[in-house]
């Protein structure tokens, strides 16, 4: 009896609530819809506003790069009144564009591929094996992420300038001479060698990403391979690595972008030869700033903008092609805190 009563009461209430013409119901729906609508409006306004702040300097860079009004004309806003390619041509010449791009590509592509190989090996080692001293060694990985390279770059620089093949070159001293050293500075090897050994720009971070990724993969695959008589290295190459495509892509994109943009280390390593874009542009920008206002025929501010545009175009193309993977893979791989 009691239960029946409650049930019928409930039914009544539910009927009352879901009755389309019920005032309470309408009020609820209206407030719900209104808050959602206001939020959507606010969100759109916010995103457009902040998006504008992000895109503004890029648009003005574009606008300056093709602007032919060298003396400055405050009436134009976005589209230059006198369109010119001269800024771009001069910037191209200042940057020695083809040469610099070639250098940058060699450094960035080479290092990122080497980092993928070495960091994935190390990441797999840390993710799957419980060897002695693992925690202490992993602490070293974390330390190498935290310690800014600037603090020890002096010593690294001298090591590269007089590179002795990890101390092997010191054998030369035994034969009554100097240590055998090879200068790595001004060559691509100053980036390739550390990348080969899972160091280089933010190598620790990539090990971390790979470790997280491999730790999240099911162990059954490896066990099956082991039973079939596959050794550890083969398991890694034939089973784990092909499945780690998204992690590899994430690391490649990050590594490529950071190498492309790196200025600090590159500036140390490349003083006379093989300079990448970032180094060339910085040196030329000093010169261009000095020239600003000096010559009436060209506006160096505009040329500087054209130079930056030239140096970012390859990255923007890469981003346009890979942005889908870039964002999704990072969101998927995740970095567990």
């Amino acid at each position: 009896m009691e239960i029946k009563k409650i049930k019928s009461l409930n039914r009544e209430k539910i009927a009352e609530w879901t009755e389309p013409n019920n005032v309470k119901h309408i009020k609820k729906v209206v407030t719900y819809k209104a808050t959602r609508w206001v939020w959507a409006l606010f969100r759109t306004a916010l995103l457009i506003g902040l998006g504008f702040i992000i895109i503004y300097p890029l648009l003005s860079m574009l606008s300056y790069s093709f602007n032919g009004d060298f003396m400055g004309n405050s009436t134009f806003v976005w589209i230059p009144q006198r369109f010119t390619m001269e800024n771009m041509q001069l910037a191209w010449k200042f940057l020695e564009y083809p040469e610099s791009v070639k250098n940058t590509l060699f450094i960035a592509v080479g290092s990122s591929i080497l980092q993928i190989i070495s960091c994935s090996l190390a990441g797999y080692g840390f993710a799957r094996f419980d060897f002695k001293g693992k925690n202490i060694l992993f602490l070293l990985v974390v330390l190498s992420i935290i310690v800014p390279p600037q603090t020890y770059i002096i010593s690294t620089y001298l090591d590269y300038k007089f590179f002795s093949f990890f101390g092997i070159g010191n054998i030369g001293k035994l034969f009554g001479g100097k240590a055998w050293t090879v200068p790595l500075t001004n060559t691509y090897f100053s980036f390739w060698v550390p990348s080969m050994f899972a160091q280089g720009l933010r190598g620790g971070l990539y090990i971390f990403i790979f470790k997280q990724f491999f730790a999240g993969m099911p162990k059954e695959l490896e066990n099956a391979a082991k039973i079939d008589g596959c050794n550890a290295l083969n398991t890694f190459i034939k089973i784990m690595l092909p499945n780690a495509g998204s992690a590899c892509l994430t690391v490649f994109l990050f590594s490529f972008v950071w190498h492309w943009n790196d200025y600090y280390v590159s500036n140390m390593m490349f003083q006379t030869k093989n300079e990448p874009l970032s180094v060339v542009i910085f040196r030329q920008s000093d010169f261009m700033r000095m020239m600003t206002g000096y010559s009436g025929e060209v506006n160096y501010q505009f040329i500087l903008n054209a130079a930056v545009l030239l140096s970012t175009i390859p990255l923007l193309i890469l981003y346009a092609v890979a942005q889908k993977y870039f964002i999704e893979s990072v969101a998927k791989v995740g970095v567990k805190g």
Binding site: S118, G125, F131, M196, A198
Partner: peptide, 8 residues
């Protein structure tokens, strides 16, 4: 595992 991390 040492083999895997040796390069690093």
């Amino acid at each position: 595992g040492y083999g895997f991390i040796s390069i690093w």
